[in-house]
Amino acid sequence: MKILALYGSLRAASINSAVLRTVRYLAPASIEVRLFSGLGDLPLYNPDLESTLPAVAKQLRNEVAAADALLIASPEYAHGVTGTIKNALDWLVAFEGFVDKPVAVLNATPRAQHADTELRETLITMSATLIEAASITLPLPSANIGEAELLAMPEIVSLLSGVLTKVQRAVKWLPDMKPYLSSSLYIDSQHPAIVAQAAKLAEGYSDEEAIAKRCFEFVRDEIKHSWDYRLNPVTCKASDVLSHVTGYCYAKSHLLAALLRANGIPAGLCYQRLTIDGDPPPFCLHGLNAVYLEPYGWYRIDARGNKPGVAADFCPPLEKLAFPIMNSLEQDLPGIHAEPLPAVIKALTEHQTVEQVYHNLPDIDHQNQSV
């Protein structure tokens, strides 16, 4: 696998270039990390030069196209990214070889939050695939240290080695897993609050199974089921579920999917069709999740929230869901969905109170299996 590293400072003693050289040193034989050293030679971007591309701009585009992923580290100048890195990205805006390119962002200075946010926004606007799990802020004690000092810090070595592992995993899974790693309107895994909570849950853990379990238990135990606790407002977006600390099973599954995706773990949505009162009819949908874990593959988990008679757990490869199928008319609906079913969105967005949702729970056409 090939990673192209871009650093946004031209200083010889730049901490950002030192970080990327450290990453190159730590890379295993299976990963080639190449630092692009020509950003200072790029002329200011001018669309008129597209027909006769400067040699250094052509080289940049060729190396971006050949790379499996990009790794960018840039300092902050006056609450923004440097002109160096912005100019490089300007040369890539109209370049097809950049679209959907996996990109991870390293922030070498914890106080440089403005540039980090701005850089992420630019990359997303340019249709890059931001690898959130590998985009981290390093807890460096000083900006005046080099590779030798970085390599002598076990925590930094561990974090940067983890970045390489997560980039490699993302490249391996894309594009097949892209729908299950993407941020969207209701599974807004790139929302700052989601990213922060996902990072908090993953802190101190490198194993994806352990991280997935932490995310599952957080949503199951800390986010209150709206009907169990009679809590308003009705939530749907993952970030709203996190903000209000409540949601129906469907909304809780949106939050769990977002937290997993923010940690670079593929996650989707699953549904069951269950009786409401124990004897049919009526029926309603029940929302849960599937997470992709090596070596198990897709594994269903149910973060609905436990209560007397409900004891869902995370114990792969054994499934322990909230509700077993009790009769021939109930069923596990087929498929793993990257996005919520329209009937679920309708129920959660067209009703104002949890009582209204309860009396209008989503269901499907049993004969046609349509929503």
Rank of each mutant, 00 (worst) to 15 (best):
S253I: 12
A347C: 15
L259I: 13
L60E: 03
T109F: 06
I276F: 02
L201D: 11
E208M: 10
V99P: 05
Y45D: 03
A108C: 13
L293V: 11
D228K: 05
D302A: 05
K237R: 15
I336K: 06
S161P: 00
A78V: 10
E118M: 11
D302F: 11
P175F: 01
R220N: 15
P340V: 02
E76M: 03
A347F: 00
P334D: 10
I276G: 00
P192K: 06
V371T: 12
A57E: 04
G204Q: 03
P308D: 14
N62C: 09
H254S: 07
A29E: 15
G247Q: 07
E63I: 04
Y250T: 01
V103R: 06
S142Y: 00
E217P: 03
H351I: 00
F98N: 07
A152R: 15
A94K: 09
G305C: 10
T349W: 06
A108Q: 04
P317G: 14
L44M: 14
L70E: 10
V195G: 05
E96K: 10
A196R: 13
L181R: 01
D279Q: 15
L138R: 01
G40W: 07
N87T: 10
V354M: 10
P340G: 03
Y186I: 05
E355G: 15
L288D: 00
P280L: 13
Q197L: 13
V310E: 12
A148R: 15
N232Y: 04
N46C: 08
V93E: 11
L164Y: 00
N46T: 09
D68H: 15
I223Y: 02
R220F: 06
G247M: 08
A73F: 08
H244N: 13
R220Q: 13
L10I: 08
D207N: 15
N144P: 04
K320S: 11
A27Y: 03
P342G: 07
A65V: 04
Q352Y: 11
P175Q: 08
H366M: 14
P324I: 07
A66L: 11
R300Q: 12
L138T: 01
E32G: 02
L259F: 11
K178R: 14
V234W: 00
Q367D: 12
P75D: 05
T246V: 10
A13M: 09
A258W: 07
G297K: 10
S189Q: 08
W298S: 06
L333I: 14
A311M: 12
Q113N: 11
D41Q: 15
E350V: 11
V245W: 15
L106G: 03
N107M: 08
I194A: 06
A133Q: 00
T246H: 12
R111C: 05
P295V: 08
G146K: 06
K320H: 14
P362F: 01
P179K: 04
R300W: 07
R21H: 14
R273V: 10
P43H: 05
Y77M: 05
K58V: 06
P233N: 04
M153E: 12
A13Y: 07
R24A: 10
S239T: 07
S14H: 02
T52R: 04
V195W: 02
R304E: 10
A338F: 13
G335P: 01
L150H: 02
A290N: 04
L42W: 14
G247C: 12
C236I: 04
A196V: 10
A67V: 00
Y299Q: 08
S328L: 06
W91L: 09
A55N: 12
